[in-house]
């Protein structure tokens, strides 16, 4: 709880000067992650998910590193960058899956938009919200995927099985987010430098 308070106070201080409509020069300038680094992470995530799938599987579900990377990048940059990166990542997943049409493209773009909307709020800067947020985002993305599959006439005919897999995937993603944030705590806070 104490850590959360510190995180919230730090985020408020960080972004107060960057509120939309402020005329004064911001005290802190956001320092988004380098695109090449995130792109590289996406490639590694895709290779891991498609090549080592049988080893990443728990009870029929699999960790979605792609979801975590898109959500994290959107939280650090905003909606526009988030949706663009989400579209790219989702397109790659659709290309690799082969039988999903454009479902992953737009489901992942949705993650980019949703997380991008939270980019300048304290919700994006504390592990207390980031870890359950990872689970929630995974569930939202998977639900959007199922809806889009249905809309394309490619409905997955096993709702119970897939819902079970979705729940497990959200748990696994939250677990991975927790581990990563424990090892690299700096990823849990937005980077910025004083002007």
């Amino acid at each position: 709880m104490e850590r959360m308070k510190v995180d919230v106070a730090r985020t408020r201080a960080l972004w107060t000067a960057n509120k939309p409509g402020e005329t004064a020069a911001p005290a802190y300038v956001p320092d988004p992650p380098a695109l090449w680094g995130v792109a590289l992470a996406l490639v590694v995530a895709l290779v891991l998910q498609t090549s080592l799938a049988p080893w990443l599987q728990v009870r029929g579900a699999r960790v979605s590193f792609v979801t975590l990377i898109v959500a994290w990048y959107a939280l650090r940059t905003g909606s526009l960058h988030g949706v663009t990166f989400g579209l790219i990542a989702g397109s790659c997943e659709d290309a690799l899956a082969g039988s999903t049409g454009v479902a992953w493209t737009f489901a992942t773009a949705l993650v980019g938009v949703a997380c991008g909307r939270l980019a300048r709020t304290w919700l994006a800067d504390t592990r207390v919200t980031l870890v359950p947020g990872a689970a929630l985002v995974t569930l939202v993305r998977d639900c959007a995927f199922l809806v889009l599959m249905h809309a394309q006439g490619l409905a997955l005919p096993l709702p119970v099985v897939h819902f079970h897999a979705m729940l497990w995937q959200s748990v696994l993603d939250a677990l991975v987010a927790l581990i990563v944030l424990q090892i690299f705590p700096q990823l849990g806070a937005a980077r910025a430098h004083r002007r």
């Binding site: 090549s51 599987q57 579900a61 792609v66 899956a97 082969g98 039988s99 992953w104 897999a165």
Partner: peptide, 10 residues
Amino acid sequence: GYDPEGLSRT
């Protein structure tokens, strides 16, 4: 390769 998300078996 395998399906990237595991929701379909491909």
